[in-house]
Nucleic acid binder design. Sequence first.
DNA 1: GTCTATATCGGGATAGAC
DNA 2: GTCTATCCCGATATAGAC
Lengths: 226, 226
Amino acid sequence: MGTRREKPPTPKAEETRERIVDAALRLFREKGFDETTMRDIAAEAGVATGAAYYYFRSKEDLVMAFYLRTAEVAREMSGPTIAKSADLKKRVRAILDVNLELFADHRRLLVGLTRIGMDPDHPLSPFGKETTPIREEGIDYFRDAIEGSSTKIPKDLQPDLPRLLWLYQLGVMLFYIYDKSPEQRRTRRLVDGSLELIVRLIQLSGLPLMGPLRKRVVALIREVEA
Amino acid sequence: MGTRREKPPTPKAEETRERIVDAALRLFREKGFDETTMRDIAAEAGVATGAAYYYFRSKEDLVMAFYLRTAEVAREMSGPTIAKSADLKKRVRAILDVNLELFADHRRLLVGLTRIGMDPDHPLSPFGKETTPIREEGIDYFRDAIEGSSTKIPKDLQPDLPRLLWLYQLGVMLFYIYDKSPEQRRTRRLVDGSLELIVRLIQLSGLPLMGPLRKRVVALIREVEA
DNA sequence: GTCTATATCGGGATAGAC
DNA sequence: GTCTATCCCGATATAGAC
């Protein structure tokens, strides 16, 4: 699966596509998402408006294109860092850090992306059908981070933990959007503190005394997911 | 405080305002937020489009008007229910239930409201300055629910707990938006389970063994809020 | 298959006359 | 305060060049 590429990967018009994304990105960055018009983007890319719509169904799709592009880079970046340590906290942190860095220069874009995501009926919503490959890939990433770590995860928690961490990451990104502190320090602090807490809770949850509570949590997750 | 009324409450043109909100609400309900145009609303209210914009800066503002109107009713409704029990879980649940019921017939409207909320620069964002009165009122509501309950809250947790529960409520509403299950049963299950868990965790956190962990949580909240 | 040019529509938002 | 006219922009459609 992955990004649908049923038609041949296109010859050299791929470059036009890139030019449009580049132009969009530049303008989004300079003026923000709402202030940038499709006419602007097309002009900046040196193509007709129609061309932009030929490649992208909507303005929001352009944001998604940016996300897909950078997400790939991000994966390559975080891979080595994750592998460097067996510490669960450090491994998950590496993923979060890369995601935050990804948007460090484009925080306003994140608002546009989130607007897409907040509409449950939008095909590009993070919980929608069309984004399943991206979502599962993201979750798998956390799964790898967990499985390669030295932390022992209770058996009943194992199947759901990756998805929970993925959700946690979404929450962090949400916080990030609202974080107006210089260089988003508050988000860093949130990640520092909450991650420490999460790892500690996971470890605690493995204690025999915590069995009932843990079972309750797992039951809740299962019930809600269904 | 509340909705700013610095200018004299307006004479009888208040009625026009009401008519517009009524019309909007009716159409939103019938056709959904996106499908309803400002032209529709104005026509339904028997005024020109410009008139609608005279009273409301944007279409989304109309949703906020709806929210403010119904929130008042909701408060009157949940008051008695809360007072009926000393059980913290039941008291908090009463607040959540009323909030969910509020939107039961207007779930799609919630998407519009959330779109406002997701833009950190929007004046009506739930974390913005303009909405401080509403927000504080909501938080106070949880404070009352906590203080009137029989559950003992650790001292260091007391100042922050109302705000945390308020945030938790926002999270529930977010989940609600995506919940496509019949009659939003999954959201009900989520509330049931998570509330039980929260209350239990609060009680657990009071145990002497849990002191360090609790302190860590409190420290995190303080750090992030600053 | 890739793209230009242009016309058109629908809808949010605004300006200015009354 | 209210209406009319207008603007702007996202999106679609079409016809045709290469």
